[in-house]
Design a protein around this nucleic acid. Structure first.
Lengths: 338, 338
DNA sequence: TTTTCCAACCAAATCGTTTTCAAATTTGAA
DNA sequence: TTCAAATTTGAAAACGATTTGGTTGGAAAA
């Protein structure tokens, strides 16, 4: 059913019908009500593509998805979905071929030019992230999930990674640990730098010298956790505590500890960051895992919310949210054994 | 840059330019080459919304995402992305508010009517799935990831869940196990029925009577695995083997076994289904996990491929793929102890 | 009564392409 | 050289909405 026909059936002009449905004021209440009612009854819905062509609005938010397929991703999107379901906005997932730099910039540029999205969410930003510069230059509204030091105004939402790791590390120090290992994410992303900083500061403020051997970084896989923990624990002067970065690496660390006949929460303390997954909870691990916690899903919901505000004109300069991270102590952290 | 201007710069008509770019035959090679080259140089790209309005194509494939935010989802999408990156097609994720039945049907109906997608992928179908009937009725191309018994022609791709579980269970029986527990997915979906069938058939063909107490079902969480395994193993006549359904439940099962001072691969054998995640591999578990394996990512890639074929006119009746599942034996399955 | 104003409605232009139909040009055979 | 056929090109009409810039009729003001 097209606007033309629908209007004819109502004995009105397309103009009036369009106005009635879009909530413009210059149409009488009684007419508006009738139009709305009949639209439902006759099943008229404006053709999205026509609306988009005319208004220039895309009705979608873009998210670029890397090849990695991180498990956080689904949770974040589920969170976004929670907020967007009420709006008439959907999520456009744009596949990214290679993490090749030029390709990536090209992808963003084309995405913007194609006018398929009203705004973009940028994930895992780097301290000096050219994507941000580009999007700013092109005038596309965007929200950064994470942070960047780049000297370009932009909206962002991030969690306090630095504080989280500092707290976690400090807590371990309070328990008497001095050899504390740290598993970080892939170098390059700002969050990895922040975590590194939190870790270093905690050590420094308590006068503990940093041992570079105790730091690893890479994708947050179970395997990374296992390999690194295992190799450290087999060494002469093993760490007594490990900051494990993510739930998956924590699983690997647990496994490594057990494989050497040791126990988490006794010979080795472990803290990780928990993004709060419905299918794998820190509380249920054995022993239960002490963790810094921040819901990925909630972040998704809030990001969607902020993006909508951005699209409807709010200044990016006003949008900066730093979420505190809670540290939840469970059985995996205990006083150092002597 | 609009088509109008661009054509003018080239001294050609919009018609010719459009044809040159869309690869129509009635344009000379030399002109086509010049147009293509200049398009790149001057940065002309057709406005997607105009193209869509005119052609009626949306350039996107729809995927409805439930609130659950399953961890499979990201892998499947990453797989789709792998195939779609070459095409000019993207993935539209449509958030679903409640799993309320009426809402769900309404959502699909509106999605179709809105013409935002060229095709839809339906996940976790039920034996008699109304979504399939609806999409068929509305004439929207769609591919079912999984299977349905519904009497409506439709394209599908599924893995052989029945065969996988039958093989896994038979293998356990071969090893001398007779009390074999089974953790299944949420009842309702066809794949859960298939798995149930495979399990029952394996038992029956070897003359083992089924004990309903040994069957559980629910979301594939770590917690379900733990709770169920633990409660069974504490009982008087505990199972000696468990078919664990997914990697996450397998984690829970492992934990339960350990928590009782038992060992996987000795007192209790475990098999699970592995969707092949980059961050958590069966091979790396301790002991390594025997698993039926089928790559979720590969399924996503293939589904994207098939959907593209569907969109370009191939009959749904020709598209039925049943993927075999391999059973990979590792340390978690061993002869029953007596 | 006449003028002014306002609420309510509408015709037609527009968004940026694709595609139909027709015209112009080139080619090749006679 | 000529003319029909084949090849290239273009003008203009869609696609289905929104929106600008009017009308219209009746109530309020003069």
């Amino acid at each position: 059913m097209k606007l033309r026909e629908f209007a004819k059936q109502l004995g009105l002009s397309p103009t009036t019908v369009s106005r009635a449905l879009s909530g413009y004021p210059e149409v009488s209440e009684v007419t508006r009500a009738r139009v709305a009612e009949e639209a439902v009854r006759l099943g008229y819905r404006p053709n999205v593509n026509a609306v988009r062509l005319k208004t220039g609005r895309a009705g979608a938010i873009g998210v670029v998805m890397g090849r990695a397929g991180e498990f956080h991703f689904a949770e974040f999107m589920a969170g976004m979905a929670e907020r967007l379901v009420a709006e008439d906005t959907d999520i456009l997932v744009i596949p990214m071929a290679d993490p090749d730099h030029n390709d990536e910039m090209q992808l963003y540029r084309r995405l913007v030019e194609s006018q398929r999205v009203d705004a973009i969410i940028v994930h895992s930003p780097r301290p000096n992230d050219e994507r941000i510069a580009l999007l700013h230059k092109l005038g596309m509204p965007f929200l950064v999930h994470g942070r960047s030091d780049i000297d370009v105004p932009h909206a962002w939402l991030d969690i306090d990674n630095e504080g989280a790791v500092r707290r976690a590390t400090s807590h371990l120090i309070d328990l008497g640990h001095t050899r504390i290992a740290m598993i970080n994410g892939r170098p390059g992303a700002t969050y990895a730098l922040h975590r590194d900083k939190g870790y270093r500061e905690a050590l420094q403020s308590r006068g503990i010298e940093l041992d570079p051997q105790l730091i690893a970084s890479g994708n947050f896989t179970d395997e990374l956790g296992f390999r690194f923990a295992r190799s450290l624990l087999e060494q002469a002067n093993p760490p007594t505590a490990i900051v494990a970065g993510s739930m998956m690496t924590a699983l690997g660390v647990y496994r490594a500890v057990r494989s050497l006949g040791l126990q988490v929460g006794r010979e080795v303390s472990v803290v990780a960051h928990d993004d709060v997954f419905p299918y794998l909870t820190a509380d249920n691990m054995a022993p239960s895992l002490s963790a810094t916690r921040s819901s990925m899903r909630a972040a998704g919901t809030r990001c969607a919310d902020l993006v909508l505000q951005l699209v409807s004109g709010r200044s990016p300069l006003e949008i900066h949210e730093l979420w505190p991270v809670e540290l939840i102590l469970r059985e995996s952290t205990a006083p150092v054994q002597r």
